[in-house]
């Protein structure tokens, strides 16, 4: 299992990634907000990347779809 790590190595890559993600999401933020997002981005990604744990290799997600739910008796 890979950990899918996307923690940027430096602030330059954080800026590039945040710029790209905001553009892809079509979010128009102020320069001040963008600067804060760039600063926060390593922490945001670290929180997500930390969830790719070896213990979860055979674990199913806590989501369930019940096809029968949409049919009345």
């Amino acid at each position: 299992m890979t950990d899918g790590s996307a923690v940027p190595a430096d602030s330059t890559s954080s800026e590039q990634i945040v710029t790209g993600l905001l553009a892809a999401a079509q979010l128009t933020v102020s320069a001040e907000e963008k600067a804060q997002m760039i600063k926060d981005f390593p922490k945001v990604r670290a929180g997500a990347d930390a969830l790719y744990l070896p213990e979860l290799e055979f674990v199913e997600p806590a989501t369930r779809f019940d096809p029968a739910r949409y049919y009345t008796a």
């Binding site: 899918g4 997500a48 969830l51 744990l53 213990e55 979860l56 674990v59 199913e60 806590a62 989501t63």
Partner: peptide, 12 residues
């Protein structure tokens, strides 16, 4: 994938 992984963690 992060969202799914968070839900896998949720099970754990």
């Amino acid at each position: 994938a992060d969202h799914v992984q968070a839900n896998r963690f949720r099970t754990y």
